[in-house]
């Protein structure tokens, strides 16, 4: 690769800018829940919250701030990260649970990210607030092993019920079998 790195500077990407109350919703969350950190990620409003208050924050956003729909609940495993963005005020753990919310009246989105440690992968469930989060939380449990407290029916959803392991974890192997093509000297 030549010396110029791809679009944007690698250094600037390492620290994400904090918006000073540019997004009033994010500001309200930070004010109401001390310890939360609001950032702007590529034009999107993200708030890093403590996992203990995830359900309360979601409830506040749903009721007071009119976030009508939970569009996505997912998880991320950062165990194999080469480089991770530093957010001042956020203690990084292995897993993250990400909740994307959409407000139709405001026509705005917000993302809540909470850090989930490896030794205690539990997070309060947002299913009681948004019944549509039922399936995605089951998927996060199935794929990552993160349990959601308060979920009505936390069971595997994509893998067979008796499957061993959590496939999207970085230490769970992809289980690729060696393949031989015609004319290959050995399996790849």
């Amino acid at each position: 690769m030549s010396d110029e790195s791809p679009q944007g500077d690698a250094d600037a990407a390492e620290t994400v800018e904090e918006i000073a109350i540019a997004d009033p919703v994010a500001a309200a969350v930070v004010e109401g829940f001390p310890g939360s950190v609001a950032v702007e990620s590529h034009g999107q409003s993200v708030v890093y919250v403590d996992r203990g208050v995830l359900a309360e924050v979601t409830k506040r956003l749903r009721d007071a701030e009119r976030f009508t729909q939970c569009t996505d609940v997912t998880a991320v495993d950062h165990a194999a990260d080469v480089e991770r963005v530093e957010i001042p005020g956020v203690v990084r753990e292995r897993f993250e649970v990400v909740v994307n919310l959409l407000s139709h009246p405001r026509n705005a989105r917000i993302r809540l990210i909470c850090q989930v440690p490896e030794d205690d992968p539990t997070v309060p469930s947002v299913t009681p607030l948004f019944p549509g989060a039922n399936f995605p939380e089951r998927e996060a449990y199935d794929m990552f092993g993160i349990t959601f407290d308060g979920h009505p029916d936390l069971a595997r959803i994509l893998m067979p019920d008796d499957w061993d392991g959590h496939p999207l974890r970085k230490d769970d192997p992809i289980a690729r079998i060696p393949v031989t093509f015609k004319g290959d000297p050995a399996p790849r």
Binding site: S41, H42, V46, D72, V76, D81, E83, R84
Partner: peptide, 8 residues
């Protein structure tokens, strides 16, 4: 290579 970050 894509710079570190996350987006939806």
């Amino acid at each position: 290579k894509v710079p570190a970050g996350e987006t939806y």
